[in-house]
Design a protein around this nucleic acid. Structure first.
Length: 266
DNA sequence: ATGGTGGACGTTCCA
């Protein structure tokens, strides 16, 4: 089974590019983030035409996560137990449904869009840390409750876990994505039993998954590694290969993130 | 070209 994660930065703006890539890259299950549309607006037809079922959760023009699978989708679930929500109204709470889980061919896949945090000290930054702490708590329970279940938590984590994962430490001084509390939160999830299964196949430094649209960042190789596939032991044991498809960051109409891919043995 | 790009929404906010 080949599983991928991709922050697509609007599925409606990029559906052709995404479905073309799904076919070309022979992907079985794709987790998407930043779909930037409502459930009604999600373009399911182009996926269905290629044999993919889709589950989606999105309520505003910024968030939105989806899973497309051609090996079936069971037990789809929006949000994880204890997930904190932002704001008081129903719409705001729903918009913070940044996690979508589904079982695909026996593998539990979570498409995650970790809060950005905006800037250090903002309420959004505090919320990011709360959200990550709640995820760690729940994810730790998943892996202890059923160690035999392969679980993958994939997506845009909005954290560069080490200095090797940013093009310039100086450029990101005092910025979100690199602060010790964010890195501690990421490490805590790894320590709860979820390994970065891509890194062994893509050693750094200088290996990234995201490049800003501005200032020719991609051409100048100024990026960050913030998109991850974290796997429980039962998942990690099955990983045979992984890669970051930076070719998809090239050309007109690219997302600012590249897809990240893993292969699993049967 | 002197703060850059891209998307959704709506004349601005978010990443």
């Amino acid at each position: 089974m080949r599983l991928a994660t991709w922050n697509v930065n609007s599925i409606r703006a990029r559906v052709d590019r995404v479905t073309d890539w799904l076919q070309r890259a022979d992907i079985d299950v794709l987790a998407m983030q930043e779909t930037k549309c409502s459930d009604q607006q999600f373009p399911t037809m182009p996926f269905a035409a290629l044999g993919y079922d889709v589950v989606h959760c999105g309520f505003n023009q910024w968030n939105g996560v989806a899973i497309a699978s051609r090996v079936g989708i069971d037990d789809a679930q929006v949000g994880f137990d204890g997930q904190p929500t932002w704001g008081d109204t129903d719409v705001e709470a729903a918009a913070e449904a940044r996690a979508l889980g589904a079982t695909c061919a026996g593998v539990r896949v979570w498409s995650l869009y970790v809060p950005n945090g905006r800037f250090v000290g903002s309420p959004h930054y505090a919320y990011k840390l709360e959200w990550l702490a709640a995820l760690r708590e729940t994810a730790q329970r998943w892996v202890t409750d059923d160690p035999a279940l392969p679980i993958a938590m994939v997506g845009d984590w909005n954290i560069a876990p080490t200095d090797d994962d940013v093009w310039s430490v100086e450029a990101y001084r005092d910025s979100t994505h690199v602060t010790p509390p964010e890195r501690d939160a990421f490490r805590a999830i790894v320590n709860a039993g979820y390994a970065d299964v891509v890194r062994p196949f893509t050693p750094g430094p200088g290996v990234y998954t995201y490049w800003d649209y501005t200032r020719l960042a991609f051409q100048k190789r100024r990026g960050m590694r913030i998109d991850f596939i974290l796997g429980s032991p039962a998942f990690a044991d099955r990983v045979t290969h992984a890669e970051i498809d930076r070719e998809e960051r090239k050309g007109k109409g690219a997302s600012d993130h590249a897809p990240v891919v893993v292969d699993l043995s049967d």
